[in-house]
Design a protein around this nucleic acid. Structure first.
Lengths: 339, 339
DNA sequence: GGAACAATTGAAAACGTTTTCAATTGTTCC
DNA sequence: GGAACAATTGAAAACGTTTTCAATTGTTCC
């Protein structure tokens, strides 16, 4: 059913009906109520494409999805969904194959120029991320989940990665550990750099120096956790504690420890960053895993909210949120054995 | 830049430019080439909302995302993305809060009636799923990932859940196991029913009967795997083998077995269904996990393809794909101890 | 060379809304 | 009761494309 027909049935003009449904103030309460209830009864719903053409609003927020299908993606998007379901705004997932920067930039450009989205959220930026400059020059509102160090101003929400790893490392140092390994995230990403800083600073505060041989960057997976932990623990001067990038990584670390006949929490302490996945919880691991915790889902919800504010015109330089990270101590961290 | 302006710069009419860009046959090759290259150079791209209004095509496939943010979701969507990136079709994620059928049905109705999508994909149906009847009555193309037993004809792609669990169970029976437990998926879903059938049939073929006390339904998670495995293994007449619904479930099962001082593959055999997640691989578990395997990502890619065919007008009753499932034996399944 | 046809291009209408500006109706107050 | 104003409603233009139908240009063939 179209507006013309629906309006005719109500004995009103399309103008009034449109206003009533869009909540404009100049329509009388009685009319508005009647229009609303009849719309429900007769099943009239404005054609979203006509609305979009006329208003210029796309009614969607764009998110790029890499081919790797990152583990965090579903949780983040699900968090976004929670906020957006009352905002009449969709989430548009755009596939992206690009294996180099230039292609990726082009993919964003296509997305924005075709006016499919009102705003874009980008993830895991690097310190000087070309996407930020490009989105800036296109003039589309965008929010960075994470932070960049580019000179281009941008709205962002990030967790305190540096503080998280610093506190985790301090905790291990306080327990008496002196050789601590770190299995970090993807090299070059700002979050990985911040985490490394936290790791170094914790050492420096105590007059110690983080051993570069005990620091490695890789993707978050069970497999990489296993491989690196195994390699560390078999080396000549093995660490007594490991800081892991994610609970998935920690899973592999646990496995590596066990495979060498050792026990987590006794022979080797482990602490990891936990994005809070419903299907894998740190407290259920054996032994339960000490973590720095920040909900990826909550970040998604808040990023959606902030993006809506950006679209509504809130100033970009007002939107900078740094979330503190909880430190939750469980059984996987303890003083080193020889104490 | 708009069509009018772009056409004027080229010295052509909007009509010709539109036809050139849309690949209509009646435009000369020379003109088409010039239009294409100038569009690239000047950065002209049709406003997607105008195109959609005019053509009635939404250029998007809808997927509902439950609040639970299922673990499979990211892989499936990522698989879809792989097919759709060359099809100029987006994936529209619609948040859904609904906790009852009626609300969920309404959410689908809104999505379809607002013409935001050309087709919809639904997941994990039940034998008589009301969504299928509703989508049928709305006349929108839709594909079911999974199967239903409703009388309403529907296009579907499913994996052979029955065969998968049947073969897994046969394998365990052949090894000599006689008390086998099964940790199934969500009660009432068709896939869970099929898996249960496979479990029962494997027993029946050998003149045995599956013990109802050893069958349980729950969501796929580490936690539920642990809880149920623990409960089974501590019971009076404990099973010697467990069929788990997912690799996440298996993770919890492994943990439960270890927590009781037993060893997977020696004291208890475990086999699970593996949707192939990049961050948690069955062969990396210790001991490596025997599985029935079918890639969720591949299913997403194929579902996207079939949905495009549906949109293009292919007959619904032609689209029924049942995928066989690989059985991959590793270290977690072995003859029971007392043999 | 021009008739007949094919190939190519263009003008104008239309998709279904929103919104500007104008018109109508209702209310207040002397 | 009617002037002055406020509240409510409507007509028509517009958003940026695609597509129908008509016009123009190019080609073939006697």
């Amino acid at each position: 059913m179209k507006l013309r027909e629906f309006a005719k049935q109500l004995g009103l003009s399309p103008t009034t009906v449109s206003r009533a449904l869009s909540g404009y103030p100049e329509v009388s309460e009685a009319t508005r109520a009647r229009v609303a209830s009849e719309a429900m009864r007769l099943g009239y719903r404005p054609d979203i494409n006509a609305v979009r053409l006329k208003t210029g609003r796309a009614g969607a927020i764009g998110v790029m999805m890499g081919r790797s299908g990152e583990i965090h993606f579903a949780e983040f998007v699900s968090g976004m969904a929670q906020r957006l379901e009352t905002a009449d705004t969709d989430i548009l997932i755009t596939p992206i194959t690009a294996h180099n920067d230039e292609d990726e930039i082009q993919a964003y450009r296509r997305l924005v120029e075709s006016r499919r989205v009102d705003a874009v959220i980008i993830h895991s930026p690097r310190p000087n991320d070309p996407r930020i400059e490009m989105l800036n020059s296109l003039g589309v509102p965008f929010l960075v989940h994470g932070r960049s160090e580019t000179e281009h101003v941008h709205a962002w929400l990030d967790i305190d990665n540096e503080g998280a790893v610093r506190r985790a490392t301090e905790h291990l140092l306080d327990l008496g550990h002196r050789r601590i390994a770190m299995i970090n995230g993807l090299r070059g990403k700002t979050y990985a750099i911040h985490r490394e800083q936290g790791f170094r600073i914790a050492h420096q505060e105590r007059g110690l120096t983080a051993d570069p041989n005990l620091m490695v960057c890789d993707k978050f997976s069970d497999e990489s956790g296993f491989r690196h932990a195994r390699s560390f623990l078999e080396s000549a001067n093995a660490p007594t504690a490991i800081v892991a990038g994610s609970t998935m990584t920690a899973l592999g670390v646990y496995r590596a420890v066990r495979s060498l006949g050792m026990t987590v929490g006794q022979d080797v302490s482990v602490i990891a960053h936990d994005d809070v996945f419903p299907y894998l919880t740190a407290e259920n691991m054996v032994p339960s895993l000490s973590t720095t915790r920040s909900s990826m889902r909550a970040a998604g919800t808040r990023c959606a909210e902030l993006t809506l504010q950006l679209i509504a015109g809130r100033a970009v330089d007002e939107i900078h949120e740094l979330w503190p990270v909880e430190l939750i101590l469980r059984e996987s961290t303890a003083p080193p054995r020889w104490r």
